[in-house]
Nucleic acid binder design. Structure first.
Lengths: 350, 350
DNA sequence: ACCTAGCACTCCTCGCCTGCGATTGCTAAG
DNA sequence: CTTAGCAATCGCAGGCGAGGAGTGCTAGGT
């Protein structure tokens, strides 16, 4: 092996590996040495290619389903392909515009915008797309309103810069009048204005409540509302495009799909799988066993964070067979996330 | 045929038909005459049963997949079974309690309660469960709050007896102060209190706005908020349990599932299919072609409305193979809907 | 008039085999 | 280091036949 070449592979091996991956992604059939020489003018004979293929298999980049079959990429093969061999794609201006337009037409509601983006990505990628709902942690506090419903019940609404974050009903042990709730709302608003949600301390609340001489139970009411605003529905997912997976030849067998659908419906596992990509700068790929879940050996996931202002608040992902068009899906996911990010920022409540 | 007997079938034919359906539901295998005589002590020989089976086939209740196979029920066979032959089931007290408890633990948020009920029903029924989100039309108005965010932006929140129904952001052409919004909120609340949402007229709003001498654009702002409160997310569905369908032997073939997943994700078709069961008193069943959708020939749906107070506000359904345990699923769906209804009513904002 | 034993007939299913084609690895020569 | 040639391996599709499941019909019994 020539040192200094990508992945410790000499140039020809790298090219052959890349070609095998491209070809397998396109056809879903094991790739034979002859196919390579015929379709790709390698300038060498199939026998030479066979020698190279054998080396690549020894190196762990390829596997053979059975003796008299061609080669298919291993997880390591895909990994090398993604990291070093493939040509990254970027979206055509036209595609970019289509995505942007479609998201613009979506409702103003936060959840629905996220769901639209997920549906869109599912449709464009022809795979299963999913998104985490945003964490509100890094959002800015805009308004807290206590609504009087009856002497002992009310509702607290927290508005953040992204729109309504949470409503929570409360019950009081002692009667309170509408005026008290209004006064308390006002006091809190002037005290908390423009803080980030995560920076609001219990002492801020306590000060406001005590200053007005109100019952201590209000502190709990407000903390509860803020807490639920902060956590949002963070661990729930939006998903779309499961039926696309049924089109893939490798999932004609229903058993493989069962586990996936299960995982998608459970949401928890899926959330954990992508959670660590929240801090990524751009699209990240996890391939087969890298996902660390037995039932997902045959799948890969592309994940890209979306932002509100500066901070990443959630992830947009595509789940498909390992044999997925990585460059294209990374471009699509990135493009969609980018549009989503700017769509969210446009809707910011200043 | 003896007149006066169920479905125009004499007693023995009815019993044999019922037995074929039971057996086929249990085994997913065509039912043979000998199986019937061996398992069910009919008191006659298999030859006699064969004659009866031939009659039932002539009558359209059964079909034969091929000459040397047993019989399986036709849509008409299932229909007769459901309407006249099967023993209706009711839930054990223990099951009933489990459902109630599980729903009680669910969050207070309306959407999440519905989703919990759907997940629960999916799990218990071992099929695909789905629910329509409630229509707010028949809910009672409790509170409208206009929140001041900046001189020209604000948010309108409408609270109904079921909890928050809608929030909507608005922009004004002319500056307004927090006081105006508060005064308008108060005026509207005293005027609209305890009306049903659908009974609120534009003139009520206009009167309040004009009385306070406020800009006409407030009328639109408020009407928009009320409209969005009324419509809710009515046509979106919650669904759970798709992977259960993959366990059914008849759907090992991925093609049949594709159409179903598609339909479930589309939601629209599914919503239309069950919409007319909203006025039903109890569980309704649609079998195979009765659904009127080609791709759903192999499926049946059990639908039961759930209520808030007196009025039906949504539907809870189970979708599965035609070969589903109708009595059990009807009992499960009814029980879950009942618990859901009372759970919702308990959470009413009085 | 109804029931039933017996039997021929039909049709599906499964395992077995075979031949074909695809593809490889190896060898030996350039 | 490359390549042509070739034997060897393996999967797969198709054909064939045995086995079995189940029916419909017939004829005789109650």
């Amino acid at each position: 092996m020539n040192p200094g070449s990508p992945g410790g592979l000499d140039k020809r091996k790298a090219y052959i590996l890349a070609t095998v991956v491209y070809e397998y992604i396109a056809t879903a059939e094991p790739v034979a040495s002859q196919t390579l020489t015929q379709k790709y003018r390698l300038g060498v004979s199939s026998a030479t290619v066979r020698n190279e293929l054998a080396d690549l298999e020894a190196g762990g980049y390829l596997v053979q389903p059975h003796t008299s079959a061609g080669r298919i990429p291993s997880d390591a093969g895909y990994r090398t392909f993604v990291d070093q061999l493939m040509h990254p794609e970027t979206l055509q201006a036209a595609d970019r515009r289509r995505i942007r337009d479609e998201l613009r037409d979506a409702s103003r509601e936060l959840d629905e915008v996220i769901e639209s983006a997920t549906r869109l990505l599912g449709r464009l990628s022809k795979n299963l797309a999913f998104a985490t709902k945003p964490s509100n942690d890094a959002q800015t506090f805009r308004h807290l309103q206590l609504i009087w419903l009856s002497a002992r019940t009310g509702m607290a609404i927290v508005v953040t810069s992204m729109g309504v974050a949470a409503q929570s009903l409360f019950e009081l042990a002692a009667d309170a009048g509408p005026d008290e709730l209004t006064r308390l709302s006002n006091a809190l608003n002037s005290r908390l204005g423009n803080k980030m949600l995560r920076d609001i301390r219990e002492s801020d609340i306590a000060a406001a409540v005590d200053q007005l001489g109100l019952a201590g139970e209000f502190k709990n009411v407000i903390m509860t509302a803020l807490r639920s605003a902060r956590s949002g529905e963070q661990s729930t997912l939006a998903a779309s495009g499961a039926q696309n997976l049924l089109d893939q030849p490798e999932f004609q067998d229903a058993r493989k799909l069962r586990s996936i659908l299960n995982i998608v419906e459970e949401q928890k596992t899926l959330y954990d799988l992508v959670a660590d990509s929240m801090t990524a700068e751009s699209a990240e790929v996890k391939i087969g066993h890298e996902l660390g879940v037995d039932e997902m050996q045959d799948f890969s996931i592309v994940t890209v964070p979306y932002r509100f202002g500066e901070s990443a608040i959630g992830m947009l992902s595509v789940l498909g067979p390992r044999r997925m068009p990585y460059a294209r899906l990374m471009a699509l996911a990135s493009g969609t996330a980018e549009s989503l990010s700017s769509r969210l920022s446009d809707a910011e409540i200043k």
